[in-house]
Each structure stands twice: as C-alpha cells, then as structure tokens.
C-alpha cells in the first residue's frame, strides 16, 4: 500500500475514534459519514470498486440521511462539553481485547494479493473457486464483471434471497410504523 493509503487509514482511525467520542449526535453523524467515505476510498486501494461503490452509496449516503432524519425528530441535549466522558474500565477491557486480536490474529492473516491464501485454493484440492471464476466467467456467462457474474449467475439463488430480505425489511419498517403506503 502506498503512503496515500496509510494516510487514509490514519484518517479512518481518527474519524472512528471521533465518532465514538463526540457528545453531540449531529457531530457524530457527520464524522461517521466522513469515516464511511474514507472506507469507500480505501476499498478502491484494495482493488474492490464494487464494494467501494456500495460503501459510498449506502453507508456514506443513505445511512447518513436516514440518521439525520431520525435525530431531526429527537431533542438535542444542551451541553457545553464537546467530548463524551470516557469510561476507563470499558476502555481498558476493549483495549485489551484489541491488543489480543492485534497480536494473535493479525500476524496470521494473509497479505493483500498473497497467492498462497486459501482463497486461491487449498493445497489438498485441485480446484480453486477464485481461479475458476476468473478463468471461466466470460466463457460461462458472457459477462465481463466477475463479481456481477458470481452474484447474479453462479450464486443467483443467494441473490434472490438477499433481494427478498431487502423487500421484507421495507415491509417490516412499514408494519412497525403502522403505515399502509410506501411513500
């Protein structure tokens, strides 16, 4: 990763901490939107443009707007303090958890693009799903975006379930809010 990507990672860490610490909910939402935008750009550095577009459209866009709509219907607590009071025991527990994860799990993870990673095929198996999709997507589906081919064709039934889940989520919101119209 380039220096720009590391700068972006630091920006994401800072906005994440600021999201947790800001006392004013409006500030939290704005900083959280900046965090999502940073994540979206980071995904493009990791060569995942499809995920980046989803992050930018859903997390930075729709979620921010829905959160803004929600706090518009609440009252803002009047306070002079900018930051939330830090709960020291909680920080110690969470910090210890992050340290354990960082020292035990992170060194075991494969580097980005490492071709010995299991996604490129277990040594015991001859066939690797990733290699199969990359080599056969165009011949099988006549589509040039392998991600779309996996989502819509190879795993079409999963996508059908996801689409119905989104539909069910909208219906559930309408039922909870006792509304009988979509608009």
């Amino acid at each position: 990763m380039s220096a720009l990507a590391y700068t972006l990672a630091i920006f994401i860490l800072l906005t994440a901490i600021a999201t947790a610490l800001f006392r004013d909910v409006l500030s939290t939402i704005v900083v959280f939107g900046a965090y999502s935008l940073g994540m979206a750009i980071l995904y493009t550095f990791l060569l995942a443009p499809d995920v980046a577009m989803t992050e930018a459209a859903i997390s930075a866009g729709v979620t921010t707007i829905l959160l803004l709509l929600t706090i518009a219907r609440t009252t803002r607590p009047s306070t002079d303090r900018i930051f939330e009071r830090v709960n020291v025991p909680a920080v110690v527990v969470v910090g210890a958890f992050v340290m354990v994860l960082g020292t035990l799990v992170l060194p075991e993870m494969y580097a980005v693009g490492d071709q010995t990673a299991p996604i490129w095929g277990w040594p015991a198996l001859d066939i690797s799903p990733s290699v199969y999709y990359i080599e056969n997507t165009v011949a099988d589906t006549h589509a040039h975006n392998a991600v779309s081919a996996v989502l819509a064709s190879y795993r079409g039934f999963d996508t059908f379930g996801e689409a119905v889940v989104i539909f069910a989520a909208a219906i559930a919101v309408l039922i909870v809010l006792k509304r009988e119209v979509f608009t």
Binding site: L69, I166, F167, A170, V173, L174, L177, R179, F182, T183
Partner: peptide, 15 residues
C-alpha cells in the same frame, strides 16, 4: 431503489 425511497419517507413520517 424502491426500498431506499420507502425507508426515507417512512423515517420522515415517523411513528
């Protein structure tokens, strides 16, 4: 697209 619009107007109307 329909669900995004639905969620927005449902949230705006509230309970």
């Amino acid at each position: 697209s329909g669900v995004v619009v639905t969620l927005f107007f449902a949230m705006a109307a509230g309970f």
